[in-house]
Write a protein that binds this DNA or RNA. Structure first.
Lengths: 347, 347
DNA sequence: ATGAAAGCGCTAACAA
DNA sequence: TTGTTAGCGCTTTCAT
């Protein structure tokens, strides 16, 4: 592998001139420049990233911190959406000449966190978090060393932390309101994940606020903790109908849960949306396939904005107030909630 | 950020002793070692990866080269499978203290390939390829500089290149054979993707070999180029039934295509499997959900083996013959092919 | 417009 | 067992 020294020798100039030509950090005579780039081409020279990083104190990597792949939240809604997120991030990173380092934390809690290690070792210049809840220890350490990071699909209420997300409270409020407007009174709620996920909390609060604004007290019998499976939607239905307070409508946490609801309904001969109206989140392919009304969560836009924000943080001169960017999103009304006519699941 | 110098000073030893203690590259007295690690802890010291990399000539990163995220093949079968692949790779990488660098190529072909750049700049110590076909230019360059890389879910027939994959020829042969054994004569084939994807080629060859071995000549009217959409399965059916040679069975390329087939059949009042038997690939959640007979493609195992192989290549002493590792996989028989009783799509 | 040289933080050969 | 020191390949200041 050739070095800048080789290029300098072959081109008959000093190494600083080569560096100036490559980085444009000082004027270089046109013919000298031409000679240098020809030699670079000929020798297949590529600056060593470690050497460069040692001087510039930049790695040109940004870390994307995700949950452990075998945790269900990782796929974040089953399908396309992680790819969308990556594309949103990648477009910005590519433009800036940055690479993407994918990392998740070690299962064993004894070793220091992988993120902190990456930050402290200078392996990444900034971090993008795609995690459902907060590890205060990690956040505090990052803040202490003033390391740039942005939360995606999440925000942080306790500390001033930058984030990009949809407004889950508002979204959930709208979902419930939509059902209320259709005349429903007994509206059940399924959380998208465990209750310590901030998204679950925000959604529940949006839902219950909508109900309260309509003078309906949320009934805890119509509350169920769901997860990233069809089965959790199915089980939620079993739970609701065994609770003594059968719902006439459901705010599901994920499209895949809604599919489980559809299954339950079909087995019991219930009609969607006549007997049970369903509204969900994600607006994924599943929602389209099964004609489910669903609130969009555009991960491409979230990733794109988060990456842009991170690069601002990385190159910032002075301190700045953290921002919580809210991505616009909306309810895609389909057949499952009764406002429009219903299509067949397989059509 | 503290450096090795700070640690040495604070612990009252030389920097080499600190280095020896950290890396275990020379014996260090127990009490000295203790003092050093206490200081490291106290200063929150973390070795700078660039400085270390500059000396050791290793980045401790491996690159995962994937198609551009907005290409449909990226998600590689819709859902969980990319996560499975990452987990398979991540387990091995984590063990070795390696990070994962995710990269895809630039859309504009003018700039040099991102992979080559990563390899030449020393940003990664090895590469894992998850791409459906081959860019000879890239491969040739990597081979020339003896850069370690492994193909996943693919192999390379022209050049000696390491790879980990299932045997797509064999898999497809078995799928067709299964249908032949059930008495089918008019068996159609849908490719999982464009024909220049090696997987498409291998699958078609397996399929046609099975037919030929049963003295049936593959009918080009029963051949369709599919993609990663439900619609392509649906369109394939339209094509077959307009061709004048209606099939009695289909070898679909992906589970999502099979769902499109189901939709077509349902609309025309055809019964699956009575009128049309369906066999597919991936054995994904969709296959389970729709009770589709499907051939498994376990990306966790593929990723795991590919990563192990890559680390062998990275640390190899002498040249070695490239290996093409074949991952065991099998046909999961469900209701869609007529060998077992059929469940309802939503159950 | 170009060159000489210092030094980024670390490892490892060599000396003690 | 520990310390001294020479680079690794690059950027950048300071001369010229």
């Amino acid at each position: 592998m050739s070095t800048i020294k080789d290029v300098a020798r072959e081109a008959g100039v000093s190494i600083s001139t080569v560096s100036f030509a490559i980085n444009g950090t000082a004027p270089v005579a046109p013919e000298t420049k031409k000679r240098i780039f020809e030699t670079i081409e000929r020798l297949n020279y590529q600056p060593n990233s470690a050497a460069r990083g040692l001087v510039t104190r930049k790695s040109n990597n940004i870390g994307i911190f995700v949950p452990h792949p075998d945790s269900s939240i990782f796929t974040f809604s089953g399908n396309q959406l992680f790819a969308n997120l990556l594309q949103g991030i990648g477009e910005v990173a590519g433009e800036k000449g940055y690479n993407l380092l994918l990392a998740w934390d070690r299962p064993d809690k004894e070793k220091p966190s992988k993120v902190i290690e990456l930050a402290r070792s200078g392996s990444v210049d900034g971090l993008l978090f795609l995690i459902p809840n907060h590890d205060h220890t990690i956040i505090d350490q990052l803040i202490e060393i003033k390391f740039p990071f942005v939360f995606m699909g999440n925000h942080y209420s306790d500390k001033p932390v930058d984030s990009v997300d949809i407004d889950n409270f508002q979204a959930s409020y709208e979902c419930a309101s939509h059902l209320l407007k259709l005349g429903h009174k007994r509206i059940a709620f399924i959380s998208p994940g465990p209750l310590d996920f901030l998204v679950s909390e925000d959604r529940y609060e949006g839902y219950s606020s909508a109900l309260k604004d309509a003078y309906i007290e949320p009934d805890e019998r119509l509350f169920y903790v769901g997860d990233d499976s069809k089965a959790s939607g199915y089980r939620a239905m079993e739970h609701f109908f065994a609770s003594g307070e059968s719902p006439s409508a459901i705010v599901a946490g994920r499209d895949v849960q809604a599919v489980g609801i559809l299954k339950y309904a079909k087995e019991r001969g219930m009609d969607i949306p006549r007997d049970i109206a369903v509204v969900s989140f994600e607006n994924s392919q599943l929602a389209e396939m099964y004609d489910i009304t669903s609130y969009s969560t555009d991960l491409y836009v979230i990733g794109n904005n988060a990456a842009k924000m991170l690069f601002k943080l990385i190159s910032r001169k002075k301190e700045r107030q953290p921002q919580n960017v809210v991505i616009p999103s909306e309810l895609f009304v389909r057949g499952s909630c009764g406002s429009v006519s219903r299509n067949d699941p397989l059509s």
